[in-house]
Design a protein around this nucleic acid. Structure first.
Lengths: 203, 203
DNA sequence: CCTACCGATCGGTAGG
DNA sequence: CCTACCGATCGGTAGG
């Protein structure tokens, strides 16, 4: 019980630090000092740095999934537009501060092999696949005006999302997130001028 | 003279390692062993790790600029399409292996301040600005069929380029580079079916 | 979950 | 450009 809470606190700090500085920069000693426990006490929860990294990736993915991915759940709009808006909101609210945790880490670990790299590569593919599935549904439901190639459209949409967050983090200015909303609108064939529908959904 | 050559060899290795593993992972000791000299001998060329990082960023930018950016130079096609194709070719040939050196590093260093972060943030803006300038020229020359918003179009094109390289590096499969060519064609309003013109320019 | 420790490596310095 | 060294930190272990 108590160990579970400690582990959760450690992983919370690990996700935060890993998002800000990269998964490779996580150190056991640094993490131990931020959660105010001994290095070896923290170490005992994981057994190796690799296990700590793996648990951090898993935890980050759970947070992302809960916030963004449209599992059939009560109160979650399954449309493509809603998925993309949840994603942008996830960036804007800095739920995982720093760059897009998964893409940055996946690139950092590419070429190294091992379970951490596998988990990161899978997360990247799952992100693209989630968009592609929503594009297919949108094609069939008539949400998209013209039939779009699901794979290519998903890649383009994913690119806009990820780069919007990168530029957002580097500039420290949320304006680029609205640029992304406009670019998404154009990719989806939305006519010029209907921009407000996506930019200010609650207005 | 000799010192210049040594410095060039060091920076060549630094750009290579920094591209593969991230600028933050560069260590003076590790770099010294790959160029087969003593740690302090290498250190003497730079005076601090920060100066080494800064010199590495500068060197990487010179390589990128030489390969991609359309300075008015003999034999360089100034069109938007040629710029984008040089960029994709730059990724495909792994001139800087690993992720898009500048974007990954800029995100990694975002929030830290200092000259390295400044240089990286500037490189990111210069990349987007280079695309935007080419879009403006293309608008005026008639290369683009309809007048496109230069800023928004540049952001979308930059997103496709950067993400194409990320996915390329993670998958280890160049197929996504052709997906990027298709996505770029659609963004530029190229009609379906003219894809081959960009995919296989030398066929 | 702790103290106490291991060998290796970190950025950096002294002195030549 | 080198040897020799500094204090700090790395991942990890022993033993409790």
């Amino acid at each position: 019980m108590r160990a579970e809470r400690t582990r959760a606190a450690i992983l919370g700090a690990a996700v935060h630090l890993g998002s800000l500085r990269g998964l490779g920069e996580l150190s056991i000693g640094g993490l131990a000092s931020t959660v105010e426990m001994s290095k070896s006490g923290l170490f005992a929860h994981f057994g190796s740095k690799e296990e700590l990294q793996l648990a951090t990736v898993t935890q980050a993915w759970h947070i992302f999934e809960e916030e963004v991915v449209p599992f059939p759940r009560e109160g979650i709009d399954p449309s493509l537009e809603a998925l993309l808006e949840r994603w942008l909101s996830f960036f804007e609210r800095k739920v995982l501060p720093g760059g897009c945790f998964f893409v940055i880490a996946a690139v950092e670990f590419a070429g190294l092999d091992g379970p951490v790299n596998d988990a990161l590569a899978r997360a990247l593919e799952d992100q693209i696949a989630a968009i592609e599935a929503a594009v297919r549904v949108a094609n069939e439901s008539g949400e998209l005006p013209a039939g779009k190639d699901p794979s290519g459209t998903a890649f383009a949409l994913h690119s806009i999302l990820v780069n919007a967050n990168s530029v957002f983090v580097v500039r420290g200015d949320r304006g680029v997130l609205d640029d992304a909303r406009v670019a998404i609108g154009e990719l989806l064939g939305r006519p010029q001028g209907s921009r407000e529908a996506l930019v200010a959904p609650h207005a």
